[in-house]
Amino acid sequence: MKLVVIAGPPSAGKTAVVRQIVRTFQDSETIAYLKIDVVRAFEDEELRKEFGIPARKIYSGDLCPDHAGIMVMQDAIAWAGCEGAGILVVESAGLCLRCSPYVTRALGIVVISAISGTHAPLKMGPMLSLADVAVVTRIDLVSQAEKEVFREQIREVAPAIDIIETNAVQGTGMRYLMRRIAGMEEIADPETIELRGVPPLGVCTVCVGKKEIGWQHHFGVVRQLEGADWIFRGE
């Protein structure tokens, strides 16, 4: 089985990219799809209805959705295996741009909308820099100058990344992504899969639902406004 992990900000066109992947490979493989989101998601139902593929979702609730994705990844691979899938596509919620759900032995795809502004790539951290491929969507809507500058900004953050410009609804330019997926290696042993990068250090007590403001009330990774010489306060 091949594993494809798709991340990117909300409304960037992640699911449009998934649709193109399914259209391209559905005749030769079973494609399983997992959507990770926070409170509501509909993509799994849409894709199951449209293509009849095994699709499911998980809500992360109070947990960071990328952390939730990391927790369930092994289970997801086992589930997709039972479904006889040749490709498992995992789509992230795509919230804070800091974490990145990419793992080793998978293809990491970040989807960014060309209309999100020329500085958008510079504001993105590991979600962009740890990906293998950046799919830039809605390329038909922006001027030549902005297209070129957007590409340069991506290169500044991720010099070696494979950039694919597309109108994902029509699928223009997607042949390069499909070629990449077709050439991927299968996962030999799921036990050997690891996170590509270290996520932002741990979690703090805000993450688990404490509502007080001010670092005095929290532990884990905390930060003061002034003189943050130490930023870790353990239990």
Binding site: I115, G117, T118, D140, L141, V142, S143, Q144, A145, E146, K147, E148, V149, R151, E165
Partner: peptide, 28 residues
């Protein structure tokens, strides 16, 4: 796109940047 010998301009193509015309062209 900077090396491509074709420029496609559609009805939907827009300049989105919040820049003056001069700054926009200078950026390019």
């Amino acid at each position: 796109p900077a090396k491509k010998p074709v420029a496609l301009i559609t009805q939907g193509t827009k300049c989105l940047a919040d820049l003056a015309v001069r700054e926009f062209l200078e950026m390019h």
